[in-house]
């Protein structure tokens, strides 16, 4: 065989190896976390771990309930704040705005996505926390400001770039003829958007929201800095919470001496990975189908 062909074969083999590596990476991460969290799963049932709210690591009690509720609530607040604003701005940018404005907005959104989370966290400490504190005073609910609401506001800001950019892309894939057909039938612009564009883009927009949700769900440092970190089930939005990623970031690495604690923390990482991956997978599968159309 010629040397050139040998080179070709060899490179092809190594590339396929690289692809195998890329594919196994997801499994590898999941498996690694699973193996490390087996000790705690052997001691206690998963059901009990997820629903118990006793968190006393030194006594060997690991109830994830407050953390899971904290994560869900802070993410839900973020979504409630972010989704309407993001969808309306995506619709505006796609359907009404001048194309130059759209380009500027795209660049802004890209830059927003590029800003590190620790900077959002710092901004949260300087701006959002005092704001929430003031709001609490105004509403007669004393709060330090380090609360669910503050975390939700920051997460809303952090999740919005991905929601806006993905739903903008999706809206742009709706063929212009569809809009024109609707307008030719005498609909107003909004009616055309509502009945034709949004209908067409529904699945794509849904996956944009899911991607934003997943982003907010796994966000660590910014939330850790402003959400207060008190392991109790929060009763109002002005209460501090303690989401799963914050739990992991605060305690992992230091508590290596207690094996069961370590294992419990890695279980929380595994839960995080599974939830976020499930959401991401749904969203990307839907987007792939949208892309194909």
């Amino acid at each position: 065989m010629h040397w050139r062909q040998i080179k070709d074969r060899l490179s092809a083999k190594s590339m396929i190896l690289a692809v195998a590596f890329a594919n196994s990476l997801v499994l590898l991460v999941g498996l690694g976390l699973l193996i490390k969290s087996i000790p705690i799963l052997e001691k206690k049932s998963l059901f009990h771990l997820l629903l118990s709210s006793n968190w006393h690591p030194l006594r060997g009690e690991f109830g994830f309930y407050p953390f899971i509720v904290g994560t869900l609530e802070v993410t839900a607040i973020a979504m409630i704040l972010a989704v309407p604003v993001c969808l309306l701005s995506a619709i505006y940018l796609s359907e009404y705005a001048h194309h130059r404005l759209r380009e500027i907005a795209r660049i802004t959104v890209d830059i927003m996505a590029a800003i590190p989370s620790v900077i959002y966290g710092l901004w949260g400490v300087i701006v959002v926390v005092p704001f929430v504190c003031l709001l609490g005073k105004w509403l007669n609910t004393p709060t330090t400001g380090y609360s669910l609401l503050a975390g939700g506001i920051i997460l809303a800001i952090m999740a919005s770039p991905i929601i806006i950019s993905v739903s903008l892309e999706v809206l742009r894939t709706v063929p212009i003829q569809a809009r024109e057909a609707a307008l030719a039938l005498g609909t107003t612009r909004w009616e055309a958007i509502k009945h034709v564009v949004l209908r067409n883009a529904f699945h794509g927009i849904l996956s944009a929201v899911i991607l934003g949700f997943a982003r907010a769900f796994g966000e660590t440092i910014a939330v850790l800095m402003i959400v207060g970190n008190v392991p109790k089930v929060p009763t109002s939005v002005f209460d501090p919470a303690y989401p799963l990623p914050a739990l992991l970031a605060n305690n992992y690495g230091e508590m290596m001496s207690i094996p069961l604690y370590n294992s419990a923390l890695l279980l929380s990482a595994l839960i995080l990975l599974l939830v976020v991956s499930a959401f991401n997978m749904t969203a990307h599968l839907t987007l792939m189908r949208v892309e194909k159309r």
């Binding site: 976390l33 796994g218 976020v276």
Partner: peptide, 18 residues
Amino acid sequence: RLSLDILWGTPSIVYGAF
């Protein structure tokens, strides 16, 4: 591509732990 997209979305704290 799908598994890479999933990896892209994985929270960085999970990578830290891993």
